[in-house]
Design a protein around this nucleic acid. Structure first.
Length: 450
RNA sequence: GUGGAUGUAGCUCAGUUGGUUAGAGCGCCGGUCUGUGGAUCCGGAGGUCGGGGGUUCAAAUCCCCUCAUCCACCCCA
């Protein structure tokens, strides 16, 4: 019996190498995409004063905050997302050049009940543009989202786009105020793809308290949709008549969708009037990314425009728009789809130890290869060769070097490729280049190795 | 937070109406192989049957409590 039972808090996870390695590779690709658009990194603390974070994500959001008192009696909380800390930074430093384009990658914490693809600690990757009202920024952020998915080799994804002002217009149309009542209606609309029309009508009437004419109005709204986004938006204009917010939202969507073609995201982003987003702070564009092969899995990307949030930390408001990629959920989703190669080591070359006499030579060889940029692991002890090979094979290391008396005498080394079992004796001079060549060569089919 | 289901080896599970030392497959370790992995065959290690209490001559099995996990609702990355 151990003194302490090893265990994990609910909703928290360990990332063992076979998961962490693919995850970090995903992250570095995402960073590459962010930087390709000129976003610069920002890092902020995990812990903030509680009043900085509370009240920004809706009443529901506050319940999900991990908050407590520190040793000095200060009310503190773990950050709930990366957007509010960014708003704090924008409010705190007056001398930032705008537009300020930053990306941030880090864990956030929410005291939710964990479920499939939902954790209490998870990593978000945010890219935001602050300091401009231009809708080109909204388009750019959508572009970034699409490029991220593409760069990760994910084919089955879709970004749903809508606008908060359009939803506000709908609420005006059906005579429901903003706030809890309005959010209730919007959430019901969000469930349209899960529940049939009769069910939705029932919820709208019984739970959201709508008149039946208002229910009809809701369906008239969600039923809109022509052959193209432009058609849909024209219908929407007519639907809103003289409701100003609604028309403003339509105008924004019209401008944003107008740039889809040159932005190269026309096939990825689609207008979806049933989209609702949880955060209270969104004011315009809202977007959500989903894996099309996992319906009902939840969103792996969220974002939108929040023009008033920064104003809470500063006299004047700073408009901003951004997206957030949920890598942990994305990774969990890709695992379910079996799209993640599980690799448990970065090692490319395994240097075996033939016997006690070969250690010094193997050590020198390993160092030389590392200096040439290869990732090299040396066996820790000269046990039976079979064991050393089995270890390398299990870890998924592609190449193994064996140097016994025969090879040493000739100044050569045996290179075995565990991917297809071929083996060749290679001269020590130019070895690194030779190994590199083999690693870069396409892997032959598995069948040939059996 | 609400409702439902499930907890037996590292993993997936079996375990007959409560009855002796709780099983299988996979994995792991060793051997077959004195310089070569993924195959075969042989052998081996590994389990307070989630935890606590109760009923009983006897509990993995029945009852109560508790914890954990999964699914749906909810919410979202």
């Amino acid at each position: 019996m151990p003194d302490v039972q090893p265990r994990l808090l609910k909703g928290f996870r360990d990332y063992l190498p076979e998961v962490q390695l693919p995850k970090e590779r995903m992250l570095s690709r995402i960073v590459a995409v962010f930087e390709s658009f000129g976003f610069a990194p920002l890092q902020t603390p995990a812990l903030e004063y509680a009043d900085i974070l509370s009240g920004k994500c809706g009443e529901e959001g506050d319940k999900l905050l991990y908050r407590f008192e520190d040793h000095g009696g200060r009310g503190v909380a773990l950050r709930y997302d990366l957007t509010v800390p960014l708003a704090r930074v924008l409010g705190q430093y007056g001398n930032l050049d705008t537009p300020f384009k930053r990306y941030q990658i880090g864990p956030v914490w929410r005291a939710e009940k964990p479920a499939r693809g939902r954790f209490r600690e998870f990593v978000q990757c945010d890219a935001d543009i602050a300091g401009t009202k231009s809708l080109l920024a909204d388009v750019e952020v959508l572009q970034v989202a699409c490029r991220c998915f593409e760069r990760l080799g994910i084919e089955g994804f879709r970004v749903r786009l809508s606008n908060r002002k359009v939803l506000s217009g709908l609420l005006v149309k059906i005579g429901v105020g903003e706030g809890p009542a309005g959010m209730g209606v919007i959430r019901t609309i969000d469930k349209m793809d899960k529940i049939d029309e009769d069910g939705i009508r029932k919820i709208l009437r019984d739970e959201n308290g709508l008149e039946s004419s208002a229910v009809d109005d809701v369906f008239a709204f969600t039923g809109l949709g022509g052959d193209s986004a432009a058609d849909t938006l024209n219908e929407l204009d007519a639907y809103f008549g003289d409701i100003e917010v609604g028309r403003a939202g339509v105008a924004e969507l019209r401008e944003v969708t107008g740039y889809f073609e040159p932005a190269g995201i026309a096939s990825r982003v689609s207008l979806d009037l049933s989209l609702a987003r949880g955060m209270d702070y969104y004011t315009g564009t809202i977007a959500e990314g989903v894996l099309t092969d996992l319906p009902g899995f939840g969103s792996v990307l969220g974002g939108g425009r929040y023009d008033e949030l920064v104003g809470l930390f500063r006299g004047q408001s700073i408009p901003a728009v951004g997206i957030s990629v949920g890598v942990d959920r994305l990774l969990a989703g890709l695992q379910e789809l079996e799209l993640v190669d599980s690799v448990s080591t970065p090692t490319e070359v395994y240097v075996t130890l033939f016997d006690g006499d070969s250690i010094a030579e193997a050590m020198r060889l390993s160092s030389e290869l590392r200096a040439e940029g290869l990732r090299v692991e040396m066996a820790p002890e000269p046990v039976k060769l079979g064991k050393q090979l089995r270890f390398a094979d299990r870890k998924g290391i592609p190449l193994v070097l064996v140097a016994g008396p025969d090879e040493r005498e000739q100044g050569k080394v045996a290179v075995k490729d565990l991917r297809h079992g071929s083996q060749e004796t290679v001269a020590l001079s130019g070895l690194a280049a030779e190994l590199r060549r083999r690693l870069d060569a396409p892997v032959e089919s598995e069948a040939a190795s059996r």
